[in-house]
Design a protein around this nucleic acid. Structure first.
Lengths: 331, 331
DNA sequence: TTGTAAGCGTTATCAA
DNA sequence: TTGATAACGCTTACAA
């Protein structure tokens, strides 16, 4: 592996000059610069980033820690983060925790040990422990789900989205909307549940809520019990796209048709929402923009800019009405 | 930021002893080990991985470079890689190239500079240049798409999968299957096209092939032209899940029903294949296992084990028959 | 078993 | 403008 001394020797200059020439920092004789460039090129020299990071006391790498790489919401966030990171000269280490708190802890530890320049985290729960970052002076931006502790935080308007969705269902004439949500230590989905409850309560309708663990069948069994029980719902609000898939699966199994026999509305506009029949109504989040804003804020934090106190940014969600939430009279 | 000397001072020992105690290498007096552990704990000491990597001349990080983070095939591969990597004590840097050769080059450069322990690459094209890894002695395992140069390579049986799929379509009675594929410098999809052509040729049927660039509408416009042209196809083989989505979109727009008016079969068993109506037939690849095997091979390469010459592993694909490829007589 | 000190490959300081 | 050299924080001979 060719190193800086080899280049220096080949170009007949000191290592200091090689370093300066290649990092075009201070003024270096253009003739030497050319000689160094040529030698480096010829030898195939690649600066050792590990040594550089040690000396510079900092890396050009971020860790982006998400809970589910198969959730299109998070992959869209990741693209937003990545595009902005690249612009700012950072590489992104994408880490998938699989909704596993232990994995999240491990990744936070790795991030701290590798001295990444910053972390963007979608925490497993509201009590995720990020103190290790604080202890090592690593800036943190939280996305999607809020933490108990104060931190920069960017998310979609979950509560408002759920309110819009639930009100829409009721306006369409559905009388018994149920909410299929995630475990109650997950901030964002709790916001959605609360939005739902707020509306049904205001309308004097019964509240029906089911909490579905991650890593299950997308809520199929929970939804089945719901329909098999007393007072089955006539419509469903699901808080993420996997749960919407589960709802569609169970509804189809029962021979019910969305938009006629049952109303369905989900969160997040996955690629498949327009090819199911009827197409799925959703509350869409600006996922890419959430990622991009998180990255923008992280850059400011790394540079020591931005407001003194942690900032919260709630980006508005959009109700996309398609066939699944309508209520067409049976003929 | 607390470093090893701080711990040494607090524990009243030398830095060497701290290092040895924490890495439980050589024999260290248990009493001292305990004292060091306690001091490290109390001070919140985190070894600086950058310094460690420099000294050890090696990192515990892999780069996994994929072309599309939104393609469920690649995310499944990533999970396979990650699980195995974790077992072997490595962290995975997931890099998304967006089918952009320049981005791929940049990531390869970053990987080389950061001196990652190994790289798993799904290359953009057959001519991707990985020489920078070779030059730095970084082991490489190629997944999904083959390179022109020799390298360890793991993929699904694309050709055979396409053969199975096409033969199935013909057996169902479809007379004019068309193949919707990706640009011809993409190895895997070319294999699928060839499998398709092999079968239709053998049956004396016309070959109809369309190459769809990445980053488009999932082939909707190409498929539209196909149906609007002379000799429209009566069935479709699509080589990835985004193209299947495009096919479904256009077919629905035309008011055709898969499994009756048109046969459709795709590649990769995405989560949504069972909720469309009728469910989508697919050639499923063992994506998780491809990732896991790639990781397993990479570990062997890093340890200097494994066969002397590059290895190729082709994992078998499975035909999953659902409604979309049937041919039910119109009544 | 423990401590001293060299060295990993860079960058930045200081003197020339 | 250039060169010699001291760090950066850790691991590991080598010596004690």
């Amino acid at each position: 592996m060719v190193k800086i001394v080899d280049v220096a020797e080949a170009a007949q200059v000191s290592v200091a000059t090689v370093s300066r020439a290649l990092n075009n920092n201070a003024r270096v004789d253009p003739v030497l610069v050319e000689r160094v460039r040529e030698a480096a090129e010829r030898l195939g020299y690649r600066p050792n980033a590990v040594a550089r990071n040690l000396r510079r006391q900092g890396t050009r790498v971020w860790a982006l820690i998400i809970t589910d790489i198969n959730n299109p919401f998070y992959t869209a966030v990741a693209r937003g983060v990545e595009d902005r990171a690249q612009e700012a000269g950072y590489s992104v280490l994408l880490c998938n925790t699989d909704e596993d708190q232990a994995k999240e802890d491990r990744y936070l530890q790795v991030a701290a040990q590798e001295r990444v320049a910053g972390v963007i985290l979608a925490p497993r729960s509201t009590v995720s422990d990020t103190s290790i970052l604080e202890a090592n002076g690593i800036p943190l931006v939280v996305v999607d789900r809020q933490l108990d502790r104060e931190a920069d935080f960017i998310t979609g308007a979950s509560f408002e989205g759920a309110v819009m969705a639930t009100e829409h269902l009721i306006r369409e004439g559905w009388q018994r909307p149920a909410c299929i949500t995630r475990p109650s230590d997950t901030d964002t989905t709790e916001q959605r549940r609360k939005g739902y409850e707020d509306v049904v309560r205001r309308h004097g309708l019964p509240e029906t809520v089911r909490h579905v663990p991650f890593h299950t069948d997308g809520g199929v069994s929970a939804i089945r019990e719901l329909f098999d029980g007393d007072d089955p719902p006539d419509s469903l609000l699901t808080v993420d796209s996997m749960l919407a898939l589960g709802a569609l699966t169970e509804v189809q199994r029962r021979g019910l048709r969305p938009g006629r026999d049952v109303g369905i509305i989900g969160f997040d506009d996955a690629v498949w929402t327009t090819v199911v029949d009827p197409p799925l109504s959703v509350v869409a989040q600006p996922a890419y923009e959430i990622g991009a804003e998180a990255a923008r804020l992280l850059v400011r934090r790394i540079r020591g800019l931005g407001p003194a106190t942690p900032q919260t940014l709630i980006m508005s969600t959009t109700l996309i009405l398609r066939g699944s939430s309508r209520r067409v009279r049976r003929r």
